[in-house]
Design a protein around this nucleic acid. Structure first.
Length: 902
RNA sequence: GGGCGCUUAGCUCAGUUGGUUAGAGCGUCUCUCUUACACAGAGAAGGUCAGGGGUUCGAGUCCCUUAGCGCCCACCA
C-alpha cells in the first residue's frame, strides 16, 4: 500500500557505502563557509579538528576506530549546530615504521637490502609503495564514517608540508634553538639510528649482576665493583668511590688497571656514588652510560666508545673487536674468571631500556646528532595550559603534562634513516654549515660548490608537531590558514600526549604565536574484554573491519562512544557491539512503524503548523513523550558541553528504547485507531523520531541518515508534509535540537503519565504472577479518588497496555464495599481490583499486601525521620517539598493497604 | 623513588557542581512468534557501591587511611 516498504532487518552492508558516497558527493564534508569562495564571511567562527594522521602504510586498528568515532561525533555535532566545520584528514610518513616495512618487503620479494639499492633507489621504491598502499588506510577511515574534508587531505611528505618543515627547522636554527653536537644519545642497534628519550621504554627484568676486582696498579689490592654490562668494562675510564667512604678513601688518586686490556685509569671520588649500594664503588664508562657521562664531564675524563652502530665491539675493545655485545660480555667474563678477577654473580632485577619499535636493548652511545633546545619552548607550552588558553580533558592529564615539560631534556631530532624529511643542512670540505630553506648551490660561508647535504632525516614527530598549521598552508598566510587556524579541539589518545600533543603546542606557539587548539580531549586505550592490551602475540586483536562486517559501523562506533569515559581505557567485547547492532535494528523498526503511521494519515488531515503539541486534543501520552524529549535535549546538551559523550549516548538510547518504543509507540498503536487522534499521533511520532535521529546522528550516522531520508520523504508525501518543509536534503546538515526552557505543563504531564505507567506495570506484574494468559483480557475496577478524571481519560490506554477488557472496566471515585474475589492492588492513591474468579488465594493476597505495606512503612519511617531532622531547614526548599510529597503519597498508599487488610 | 587511575549486580561497565534505601548491556529464571522489531515483547531474581575513619542535615559521589590491580614518570652500578 505505501511506498515505504522497508525490510524487517536493517541492512547496514548495503546502506553504509551508499550513504557515505552520498555524503561525499554532496560536498557535506566541506565547511559551508569557505574562505576560498566569493561569498565567504570571515566573521563566522569555524570549528576545526586536525586528524591525528595515521601511518600511511598502517592498518586500521581499534585505536583508529576510537579516534574517528569521537572526532566524527564532535565534528557532526558542530556541523549540525550550523557552524562551518572542518576536519582535516591526512597521513603520516611514519619514518621508522614505513622504512622497516618496505625494507622487509624488499628483502622478501627481491632479496635486496636498502644498502644494496642505495638511497635514491630505495626512496623511489618507498614512494611507489606509498602510492600503491597509501590509500588503504584512508579508505578504512572512510568506512568508519569519518566526515573529513577529503579535498583537503594532506601527507607529511607533501611539498607544502615539507616546506613547512624546512621553514621550521631554519627558523629554530637561526634562533639558536637547534644545534648539532656530540652527545650521549639512545642508540637503537637494530634500527641503526638514534632515537629520542620518548622512544625508549623501560621494562623490569631479571639480569645478572657481575662482581669483579678492579686491581690497583703495582699492588695486590683491589676495589670490588659490580656491573650488569661487563662488556662496558672495555670502555671504562675511571673507578669512582664516595669521598667519605672509609673503605676506599685510601685508594682515591691511585691508578687502577682495566681487566684484560690493562689500560691504566684513575680512582676518583664523586659524591654521586652511593656507599650503601652494591660494593660502594662504581666503574665509569662515559661512552655508554648517561650517569658516567656526567661524572666524566665533572672530572675531565676521556670518553671511550667501544661499540659500533650494530653494537659490536669496535677497535677500542682489543681482541673482542667484532664480537656482538652479548657475546663479548660472555667472553670477557670468561677471560676475567680465568685471570682470577671475578668475585661473584647474582640475580638482580632492574629496569632495562628497550626500543619502542624494535624491542632490542637500547645502547647509550656518543654520537653527533641534531637537537632542539627545549627550555624556552617548554616554558611557553607550560604557560599556555597554566593560564587556560589550552584546556586538557580530563583535567588530571594537565599534571602529567606539567611534570613532563618541567623536566624536559633537549630533543634529539636526527635519525639515521632515509625515509623522511632530510635535514636542510649542507657541509663544505672546510666544515662550514649552510642551513637553508632552498637547496643551496654553494657554501654560504666560503662559496665552495663542493657541498653535500646532511645524510640524516628528522624525527617523524618533528613534522607531526607542525600538523595543525602545516596542513592549512603555513608558512604562507593562505585563506585556509587565516580562517581555520587555530584549530578547535585536539582529540587523541593519552599515550601520545608527550610525543605529539606537547610538541604541537610548543611548535604552534613558537611558529604561529598562537595555541594550535584550545581544547585537548584525550581518550583511553581500547583493550580486550578482560583488560589486556591487544597484541598480535597474545592473539586477542580485534579487527575493526571484521567487527564492522559483522555488526555494522554504527554498532562499533556506538560501542566505543558509550560506556567509555575520557582518558580511561575501555574493555571492548564483541557482545557489546552485538547489543548495539541490536539497537540499530531496534531503531530501524521504530522507523518502520513511524513511517508507516505517517503514510497512513487520512488525506483530510488537519494542518499541523502548531509547534507545541499542547492543545486541547493532545493526549497525555503525546504531551508526556514531548516533555520527556525536551528533558532529554537539555540533558544531552549539557553532556556535550562537558564532554560526557558516553553519558549523552546512553541517555538517548534509553529514551528511544525505554520511553519512545516501549511506551509511546505502544500507545500510539491505540491512538492511531481513533480518527480523532490519528493525525496528531502520527505527527508526534514523526516529530519525536525526527529529533531522536538528529540527536543520535553524531553517534550512529549511517542508520540515522538512512531512516531520516525515508521519514522525510514519507512526510513530504503525506498530508502532514508541512512538518518537513524546512528540512534539508540530508540529516548530516539538519539542525541538532536546541534545548528550550521547560514549560510549566511539562512536570505535571510527566507525573501524571508516571502514575499511568505504574498502574499498567502493577497489573502486568499481577498477571505474570497469576499466570494469566497473555492474550486474555481481564476485568478491573479502579477506585481512584482525586485521580478519577485522569484515569477515566486514560482508561483506553491502560486497558490496551495492561490487557484489560474495556467493557469490564470501571472507574470510581470511591466504593463503599470492596469487590469480592478480587486481587487488590495499590498504586499511589489508586486502588485496583482485579476480579480473578477462582484464582484469588486470600492468604497469598494478604502476604503480598503485607509486603507492600512493610515497604511503604519503611519509607514513611525513613522520610519522617529525615523531615524531622535538620534536613527540613538546611536542604533546599524544593527538595524538602519533594520529600514531603513523597511522604504523603506513601502514607496514602499505606492507608489504602491497611484498609485492604482489615 | 615520585605521580595517576581503577576496585559499583554472576560478567563488562555507566553514574562530574554531594540530594536520598544505586543504573545499563550481557548472562540467569518465567511467560509470549500480540498486525515495527524474537537482533523482539512482558515479568522476575541479583549489589552492606574494596576495607576503615572523617566532613555534612545528607556521601557511590568530597577528605584521610589501608589493601589489591593497572598505568605513567624517574640515572642508582
Amino acid at each position: 500500500m505505501n511506498k515505504h516498504e522497508l525490510p524487517k532487518t536493517y541492512d547496514f552492508k548495503l546502506t553504509e557505502p551508499r550513504i557515505y558516497a552520498m555524503w561525499e558527493a554532496g560536498g557535506y564534508f566541506q565547511p559551508w563557509n569557505d574562505p576560498n569562495k566569493p561569498d565567504f564571511d570571515p566573521t563566522i567562527k569555524p570549528f576545526v579538528i586536525a586528524i591525528p594522521p595515521p601511518n600511511v602504510t598502517g592498518e586500521l586498528h581499534l585505536g583508529h576506530a576510537m579516534f574517528v568515532s569521537v572526532e566524527d561525533l564532535m565534528i557532526r555535532y558542530h556541523r549540525m549546530k550550523g557552524i562551518p566545520t572542518l576536519w582535516i584528514p591526512g597521513t603520516d610518513h611514519a619514518g621508522i615504521a614505513t622504512q622497516l616495512m618496505v625494507e622487509r618487503h624488499l628483502l622478501q620479494t627481491e632479496e635486496v637490502t636498502r644498502e644494496t639499492l642505495g638511497r635514491e633507489e630505495f626512496l623511489k621504491r618507498t614512494w611507489e609503495w606509498k602510492r600503491k598502499y597509501g590509500s588503504i588506510i584512508t579508505n578504512q577511515i572512510r568506512r568508519l564514517g569519518a566526515s573529513c574534508d577529503w579535498t583537503r587531505e594532506r601527507f607529511t611528505l607533501d611539498p607544502g608540508l615539507s616546506r613547512a618543515v624546512r621553514e621550521a627547522f631554519v627558523r629554530l636554527y637561526e634562533k639558536g634553538l637547534i644545534y648539532r653536537g656530540l652527545r650521549l644519545i639512545n642508540w637503537s642497534p637494530g634500527l641503526k639510528t638514534a632515537v629520542s628519550d620518548l622512544e625508549v621504554e623501560y621494562s623490569e627484568e631479571e639480569v645478572t649482576l657481575y662482581y669483579f676486582k678492579y686491581m690497583l696498579k703495582d699492588s695486590d689490592e683491589f676495589i670490588p665493583v659490580a656491573t650488569i654490562r661487563p662488556e662496558t668494562i672495555l670502555g671504562d675510564t675511571a673507578v669512582a668511590v664516595h669521598p667519605a667512604d672509609e673503605r676506599y678513601k685510601k685508594f682515591i688518586g691511585r691508578t687502577a688497571i682495566v681487566p684484560i686490556l690493562n689500560r691504566e685509569i684513575p680512582v676518583i671520588a664523586d659524591e654521586y656514588v652511593s656507599m650503601e649500594f652494591g660494593t660502594g664503588a662504581l666503574k665509569i664508562t662515559p661512552g655508554h652510560d648517561p650517569n658516567d657521562y656526567e661524572i666524566a664531564q665533572r672530572h675531565n675524563l676521556p670518553i671511550i666508545s667501544v661499540l659500533d652502530a650494530e653494537a659490536r665491539i669496535n677497535e677500542n675493545g682489543g681482541k673482542y673487536k667484532g664480537q656482538d655485545r652479548f657475546e663479548a660480555r660472555k667472553n670477557l667474563w670468561e677471560d676475567m674468571r680465568a685471570a682470577g678477577l671475578t668475585l661473584k654473580e647474582e640475580k638482580y632485577v632492574t629496569t632495562i631500556p628497550r626500543s619502542q619499535r624494535g624491542g632490542e636493548i637500547i645502547e647509550p652511545m656518543i654520537s653527533t646528532q641534531w637537537f632542539v633546545k627545549m627550555d624556552s619552548l617548554a616554558q611557553a607550552a607550560l604557560e599556555a595550559v597554566r593560564d587556560g588558553r589550552i584546556r586538557i580533558v580530563p583535567e588530571r592529564f594537565e599534571k602529567i603534562y606539567f611534570n613532563w615539560l618541567e623536566n624536559i631534556k633537549d630533543w634529539c631530532i636526527s635519525r639515521q634513516l632515509w625515509w623522511g624529511h632530510r635535514i636542510p643542512v649542507w657541509y663544505c670540505p672546510d666544515g662550514h654549515m649552510t642551513v637553508a630553506r632552498e637547496d643551496p648551490t654553494q657554501c654560504a660561508t666560503c662559496g665552495s660548490q663542493d657541498i653535500h647535504q646532511d645524510e640524516d632525516v628528522l624525527d617523524t614527530w618533528f613534522s607531526s608537531g607542525l600538523w595543525p598549521f602545516s596542513t592549512l598552508g603555513w608558512p604562507d598566510e593562505t585563506p585556509d590558514y587565516k580562517y581555520f587556524y587555530p584549530t578547535s579541539y585536539m582529540e587523541t589518545g593519552y599515550d601520545i600526549l608527550f610525543f605529539w600533543v606537547a610538541r604541537m603546542i610548543m611548535m604552534g606557539l613558537e611558529f604561529t604565536g598562537q595555541v594550535p587548539f584550545h581544547t585537548v580531549y584525550l581518550h583511553g586505550l581500547v583493550r580486550d574484554e578482560i583488560g589486556r592490551k591487544m597484541s598480535k602475540t597474545t592473539g586477542n586483536v580485534m579487527d575493526p573491519l571484521e567487527v564492522m562486517d559483522q555488526f555494522g559501523t554504527d554498532a562499533l562506533r556506538f560501542t566505543l562512544l558509550v560506556g567509555s569515559t575520557p582518558g580511561n581505557d575501555m574493555n571492548l567485547s564483541v557482545k557489546k557491539v552485538e547489543a548495539n547492532r541490536n539497537f540499530a535494528n531496534k531503531l530501524w523498526n521504530i522507523g518502520r512503524f513511524v513511517i508507516n503511521a505517517v503514510s497512513s494519515v487520512a488525506p483530510q488531515a488537519p494542518d499541523t503548523e502548531s509547534q507545541s503539541p499542547i492543545t486541547d486534543h493532545w493526549t497525555l501520552a503525546d504531551s508526556w513523550i514531548w516533555a520527556r524529549l525536551q528533558q532529554l535535549i537539555r540533558d544531552v546538551e549539557r553532556q556535550f558541553q562537558n564532554f560526557q559523550y558516553g553519558q549523552a549516548g546512553q541517555q538517548i538510547y534509553d529514551f528511544i528504547w525505554s520511553d519512545f518504543a516501549d511506551w509511546y509507540v505502544e500507545i500510539a498503536k491505540e491512538q492511531m485507531k481513533n480518527p480523532k487522534t490519528e493525525t496528531q499521533t502520527a505527527v508526534t511520532l514523526a516529530r519525536v523520531f525526527d529529533v531522536s535521529l538528529r540527536m543520535l546522528h553524531p553517534f550512529t550516522p549511517f542508520v540515522t541518515e538512512e531512516l531520516w531520508g525515508h521519514l522525510r520523504s514519507a512526510i513530504l508525501q503525506s498530508p502532514i508534509s508541512s512538518l518537513a518543509k524546512d528540512w534539508p536534503q540530508a540529516l548530516i546538515v539538519a539542525r541538532f535540537p536546541e534545548p528550550r526552557k521547560p514549560e510549566g505543563w511539562e512536570a505535571q504531564k510527566i507525573t501524571d503519565f508516571e502514575l499511568i505507567r505504574e498502574i499498567v506495570r502493577s497489573i502486568r506484574n499481577l498477571r505474570a504472577e497469576k499466570s494469566v494468559a497473555p492474550a486474555k483480557k481481564i476485568a478491573a475496577i479502579f477506585v481512584a479518588g482525586a485521580k478519577t478524571d485522569l484515569l477515566k481519560e486514560q482508561s483506553r490506554v491502560i486497558a490496551s497496555l495492561a490487557g484489560l477488557d474495556a467493557s469490564q472496566l470501571s472507574i470510581h471515585q470511591s466504593l463503599n464495599e470492596k469487590p469480592q474475589d478480587s486481587a487488590p492492588l495499590v498504586v499511589g492513591s489508586v486502588e485496583i481490583y482485579i476480579p480473578l474468579a477462582g484464582m484469588v488465594n486470600l492468604a497469598e493476597e494478604r502476604a503480598r499486601l503485607e509486603k507492600e505495606l512493610k515497604e511503604a512503612e519503611s519509607h514513611i519511617e525513613r522520610l519522617e525521620k529525615l523531615l524531622a531532622g535538620d534536613f527540613a531547614h538546611k536542604a533546599p526548599p524544593a527538595l524538602v517539598q519533594k520529600e514531603r510529597e513523597k511522604l504523603a503519597s506513601y502514607k496514602e498508599t499505606a492507608e489504602k493497604i491497611k484498609a485492604q487488610l482489615k
